[in-house]
């Protein structure tokens, strides 16, 4: 199937719930279809309707949504109306979405939060995922694991290792301990490293070390890593200019932490 979408729109719409920008009706529909669990009642706003009207050039859909918004039509029906007018999903897919929505609404609260966290994790929105996992990590081991992984993804290795260590206490899983060890190695926290090393078998430790070295080699081969290393090879003024841009990019990513 080849779907004709027309001209590109360069004006993005920010979806606060997922810290995500979309630029087309197809992307909006895709978000609704695959990430419905992240959508709350505040998703449909006058701004979104204006965006659909002015930037996506879909006045008919915008007018329908405006009417539904004013009549306080329930959220599920509004979302389905968007999908049906998105030039993207078929009638069968919309029927399946309707069933998926019903399933979501019947999920127990803890599962709902975990699923929402997982969707954010999948979108690489780790800071948002942390907010979800933190709500249930005290009682939910899966949430605790994801919480630790999210911190590790954000390179907060010390915090990540603490959560892995906490989970190890609960589960006694050697894999969790390995994750904690990796994070400590990456963070260079010597005392805690020695503490773990003293507790495990020498051969196992050798395997872990081998894994770490393999991962480092893999990362060094990555183009992005090469880009960062090249910046440092170019001299001080070049470093200043480029690292500032890099830090600015990272700041945007980490703005929800702290």
């Amino acid at each position: 199937m080849v779907i004709f979408c027309g001209k590109s729109n360069n004006n993005p719409y920010y979806i606060k719930e997922a810290d995500l920008n979309i630029k087309s009706i197809q992307e909006l529909a895709y978000f609704i279809y695959n990430y419905a669990i992240l959508i709350s009642n505040s998703f449909i706003t006058k701004n979104l309707i204006l965006y659909i009207d002015n930037s996506l050039k879909l006045p008919k859909l915008a007018s329908d949504l405006n009417e539904m918004f004013n009549k306080k039509v329930n959220l599920s029906d509004i979302l389905i109306h968007i999908l049906a007018n998105s030039n993207y999903y078929s009638d069968e897919e919309i029927t399946s979405f309707r069933k998926k929505l019903l399933k979501l609404l019947s999920l127990p609260e803890e599962d709902y939060i975990l699923n929402a966290g997982d969707k954010l994790f999948q979108l690489k929105k780790y800071e948002k995922a942390i907010t979800q996992y933190s709500k249930i990590a005290k009682t939910n081991n899966n949430a605790m694991l994801r919480l630790a992984q999210s911190y590790a993804k954000l390179q907060f290795y010390e915090i990540a290792s603490e959560y892995f260590a906490e989970l190890y206490k609960r589960t006694k899983s050697i894999n969790v301990l390995k994750e904690a060890y990796f994070c400590l190695k990456l963070n260079g926290t010597v005392e805690k490293i020695r503490d773990i090393e003293s507790r495990i078998d020498e051969n196992l430790l050798a395997d872990w070390e081998y894994d770490i070295v393999s991962k480092i080699i893999k990362v060094r081969k990555d183009e992005t890593m090469k880009e960062y290393e090249d910046i440092f090879l170019m001299g001080s003024s070049y470093i200043k200019e480029n690292i500032e841009a890099l830090i600015k990019k990272w700041k945007g990513k980490y703005r929800y932490i702290g």
Binding site: V2, G6, K7, Q26, Y88
Partner: peptide
């Protein structure tokens, strides 16, 4: 059939020349 180019338009002056498509399976 989506018409991308009309006949009888000045070919060296065509400005609206970029479109998006989504390909699934083809």
């Amino acid at each position: 059939k989506v018409e991308l180019i009309k006949p009888g338009v000045e070919w060296f002056d065509i400005k609206d020349n970029t479109f998006d498509i989504i390909v699934d399976g083809d």
